[in-house]
Simulated assay, not measured.
Amino acid sequence: MTEHIGQRVAALRRIRRMTQADLAREAHVSLPMVKACERGVRSPGPSTLEAIGSALGVDASRLDPSYVGTSRHVHAALPAISATIAGYEYAVDPADRPPAQLRSDIDVAVGRRLAAQYGLIAKSAPSLLGDALAHLHCASGARVREAAGLVVAAARTADAAAYKFGAHDLSARLIDVMRWAAAHSEDADLNACVAYVRAETFLAARTYRVGHLALEQALDAGPAPNTAQSTATLGALHMRTAVVAARAGSADAANNHLNEARTLASGLPEGVYLGTSFGPSSVRIHEVAVSVSLGKGHIGRALDIARDWSPGPEIPAERRSGFWIEMARARLWSGNPDGAFKCLKEARKHAPQHVREHPWVREDIGKILRLRRASADSLTSFAEWIGAV
């Protein structure tokens, strides 16, 4: 039986060790509403769904994959994010939070980024960025490196919302902030992490050859793999370079970088290092991404990987969703539109808003609709949800 909204609410409430009364109080809704929702006899409206999601610390789309209000919240937050970084080089206001509290709040935001909870991170991004910048401006000595890392992490969470929702100019400005902060740190790991994120600019502009060159230079200046974090940071940069090289049509370079990433991952557990997931499973996901990026003649590799493997919970939701989006394209190219649609539905289970804003999904759903003359209701509903029809 299909899981309903109330079952998701109840499961998350129990994980957070909240009673129904606790949830009602935190969400500012009635206890009977919470009880009825969890039993499945009432469906919360958009404002109630958002309130319950906020109380549980998740985007409303996590509770109801058909929810479309996240886009409104993200776009409403973008001007404030832009204003916060307009004069990032100058110290104006003191931070509202002490460093320890800021570090904790940014850790929460990073977790939300990895879970593709864009509405929540967009809402918190301006204040996190402002406080992180304030701390960096007043830091000295050994504290500069930590403060720079907080700026990079805060800017990266904001960038996730800007980039995924098509604000590519703002995304590029946020990456400039990251590069400026990382340069203050003199930390090779942090600079490599920023180079990884900067690849978004080249991917968005489809300037793959220059992106490949920039990433190669970042690798030359990258950290020595002598700690787990340095190894993972370098490995992640090889993974990203492999994808950009594949988009540039350089299969040999792409495979060489994948091999380097695989070697670096072999001695590490799958995990999140400096805000980026890396390990054997992440490398396997990037094998799929490279095969799809190289074009239709290379999808056999992706199909082989997915035949007996799929990413598990050790992989953050956004990356799991990305795997299934890539697989949908591979299955569509292989002449299997039904299989492609199954992959897109699977992607939506993991990160609904990532799927809804992904340009490939709109393209592929349009093709699936054309190939299937008699469209199923679920396919039509999915296409309407992402705005493809």
Results as ranks from 00 to 15, higher is better:
R284W: 04
S185M: 03
F341R: 01
G235L: 13
A161E: 06
E38W: 06
S281N: 10
E326G: 01
H257T: 14
G119V: 01
A228K: 13
T227Q: 09
P126I: 08
D220M: 15
A27G: 02
L303F: 14
P32W: 12
L234E: 03
R62I: 14
F165A: 05
G387C: 11
A11H: 14
N255H: 14
H73Y: 14
A218Y: 05
R72F: 12
V29N: 06
R143E: 15
R145K: 10
C193T: 02
E89C: 00
A60Q: 04
H137Y: 11
D220F: 03
A86N: 05
V152A: 07
A228N: 13
A134N: 04
R156A: 05
A24N: 07
N191L: 06
G322R: 09
H168D: 12
G6I: 10
V29C: 03
L136A: 13
V272G: 09
R13W: 03
D105P: 07
A351V: 02
R42Y: 14
V68G: 04
G211K: 02
A302T: 11
A134F: 01
N191F: 01
G130I: 01
G295V: 10
G335H: 10
A36C: 07
P280K: 13
P311V: 04
D169C: 03
P65R: 04
R72W: 10
R39E: 12
E384R: 02
G297N: 14
P269K: 10
D189C: 05
E146D: 14
D377V: 12
S82K: 14
F202T: 03
G271Q: 05
V355N: 00
A76E: 09
K342L: 11
A86Q: 11
I15F: 06
R13I: 02
W385R: 12
M1P: 13
A248C: 08
H238A: 10
K123W: 09
E146W: 02
T233P: 08
V272M: 12
D64M: 03
L136R: 14
Y88R: 09
T2K: 10
P44C: 14
